Amino acid sequence: MHRISAANARSGNYYHQPDNQAASSRPGRYRHDTVRQRDNPYRTIPGRNEFPPASGAYTSQNLQCRSVTPEQDFNALVNPEIMDALLSKSARFAHRYDGRNHGQFASTIKKYASASKRPLNRAEQSQLMRFLQNFTVTRSWNWRSLATTLHSFTSAGAFTPHHPMDEGVRHTQAALLSTLLDAIIFKCHLQPGARDIDTQQITNLLWAMAKLVDNGQELTSGLKKAVAALLPNVNAQKDQFIAQGIANLLWAIAKLVDNGQELTPELKEAVAVLLSQVNAQKANFKSQEITNLLWAMAKLVDNGQKQTPEFKEAVAALLPHVNAQQANFKPQEITNLLWAMAKLVDNGQVQTPGLNEAVAALLP
């Protein structure tokens, strides 16, 4: 059992609003806010996606899922009664506790940030981290709880470093991340039959890890180990991923590599598996997913990925769909697509008729 303890963090009122505008002036920076939410059970990019409710009823009234509006007092979400209920539930079931109530609490924080249309500001983050000093993560948690907790807190901006940052807040952030990653690594190393992880959870976990480093968290050895531990599950469940999940996974892997994750044999194998699925599901990708995929491929090549036959086939499979969906691309998607094509050509992509047609379709 891991327990987070830290000195009380001061609540400040300084907050630097992150730039949520299209970052088209920065080559290859495909900002998460450009990825639109769809009515799809695989809503995993960006942070606004909603998890399906965990199975089973929640008996604590304090932990009931509720709609949160920006006008609600943030204090209502981080009051001592809620933490007492979480600690009580965890203590009552001990090693049999699956973490569902903790995951549901994390979801309420994400809903607050989503309703506020912004990540947690510095004061809210400090208040939350003081609240989470006794937030206990154990290896008995199931995959749903681990994925929901990490994804929800990341989406809400709970782990985004602010500058300056109180040392107590920094310590609690690091401790909470460490215990979450430890549980993920532990569960990945269980026997295959005991892993019990599904494709949505794989995608959400890798997306959250990519977003952590994209938001300024250091790519620590623990984070690298967690990524490496998750990658074999991509291969094991390759036939179960739907189109959006494939696009989100390749985006996440490319973002991690761009921030220092090594191109290990396991990572290359996961990329190869996903590229084969791009070709198989080429007709199912929407405009934003085509953009994510081509951006990810270009970024991977720019960081050392070889243009293998599977890679070239995936690019060739996507290019006709750029022309077919030319009317659906948003301005930033057009920018990112043209950047991706230029980067691919710069790294050896042949200027085929298909590529020339895609460029011609975007230029108007």
Rank of each mutant, 00 (worst) to 15 (best):
F74S: 03
A76S: 15
N79C: 15
E81M: 14
E81N: 15
I82V: 14
M83F: 09
M83W: 05
M83N: 09
L86T: 02
L86Y: 06
L87T: 15
S88E: 11
S90H: 14
F93C: 08
F93H: 14
A94W: 14
H95T: 15
R96Y: 13
D98Y: 11
D98I: 09
N101P: 11
N101H: 15
N101D: 14
H102G: 13
H102R: 13
G103L: 02
Q104N: 12
F105W: 11
F105T: 06
T108A: 05
I109D: 00
K111A: 13
Y112S: 08
Y112V: 06
Y112P: 02
A113G: 12
S114E: 10
K117P: 00
R118N: 06
N121F: 07
R122Y: 10
E124Y: 01
E124K: 03
Q125I: 04
L128R: 08
M129V: 00
R130I: 04
R130N: 13
F131M: 04
L132P: 10
L132Q: 04
Q133G: 13
Q133P: 01
T136H: 07
T138Q: 08
T138M: 06
S140D: 05
N142C: 09
W143P: 00
W143Y: 04
W143C: 01
R144L: 09
R144K: 11
R144S: 07
A147N: 06
T148Y: 06
T149M: 00
L150A: 11
L150Y: 04
F153I: 03
F153D: 00
S155M: 08
T160N: 03
P161M: 05
P164G: 12
E167R: 13
E167I: 15
G168D: 01
T172W: 00
Q173I: 04
Q173K: 04
A174L: 05
L176K: 03
L176D: 01
A183N: 03
A183Y: 05
C188Y: 07
C188A: 05
